[in-house]
Amino acid sequence: MAEIQYAAPETVAAAVKALAAGKGRAKVLAGGTDLLVQLRAGRISPDVIVDIKKIPELRKVKKDKGGFRVGAAVSGQELGENADFRADWPGVLEGFELIGSTQVQGRASLGGNLCNGSPAADGVPGLIAAGATVTIAGPKGEREENVEDVVTGPGQTSLKAGEFVVSINLPKRGKRGGDAYLRFIPRTEMDIAVVGAAVSLTLDAKGVCTDARVSLGAVAPRPLLVKAAGKALVGTKVDDAALDALAAAASAACSPIDDKRGTIEFRTKVAGVLARRAALIALERARNNA
């Protein structure tokens, strides 16, 4: 086997060049917690590995237009230490921080969790619910895409050859907004979601929901934005009837796999239950964020 080449560019432009030189046989290395496992299992055999962690902006969390630009290679621990981010987007962090162990949190990135393309990625539903976008760099320059459009199927993304994610962009949280993420696993730690549910919502001064987004993980070939579930809350005070409608819409959106960790029936039911519980946590946070 030919030796794999390694590049550690220090600018986005140089990384684009290095990826282009790989002619579709290049892999991006951020935290490496998925890439190295795949490499060692022989599931991938790239000609070149492009380490993006030497690009300063990929390692920074910046305030931007009242929101945040999170560099694609920022680790879970690094983002978790950002008190401003935690105050605005606790649900995004709840998902990100559930990925793997302490050791994995020291390296794993949101960009990597997204681009790995797992339908069960814990970091992704929170971003979708938050209305986050990604900035993608490539041979044709930069473009922006909604997070819900990035993963197209298990292990598949909308990124074209030579493209990579530079940052994850969170909008302004604003007053009376809150988010939350919950997942079901059969144990307490170190597991892959059987179902994941994220909710982000905003209330007006009277406590009426003006905007809500619901995202589900592990119940379809890719993380889902469930528009009908969000719509069920808008115009309500997030009462029981609205929550029932949200749960029904969440369950209706599921097309999960059937395995020993969770049957279709179980995953479908639990998606509604978790979406409802996540909505109640997001509601509580929104009320406390007046």
Binding site: Y6, L29, A41, S101, Q103, R107, M190
Partner: peptide
């Protein structure tokens, strides 16, 4: 395990706890 699950290879890298089986040697530069 060589897949980041067991932690037997834990080391500190730039002040962060990591699995050294999930770090390329060249990243230690």
């Amino acid at each position: 395990c060589a897949s980041g699950d067991c932690g037997a290879c834990s080391v500190m890298m730039n002040g962060r706890l990591v699995c050294s089986c999930l770090v390329l040697g060249v990243e230690a530069q």
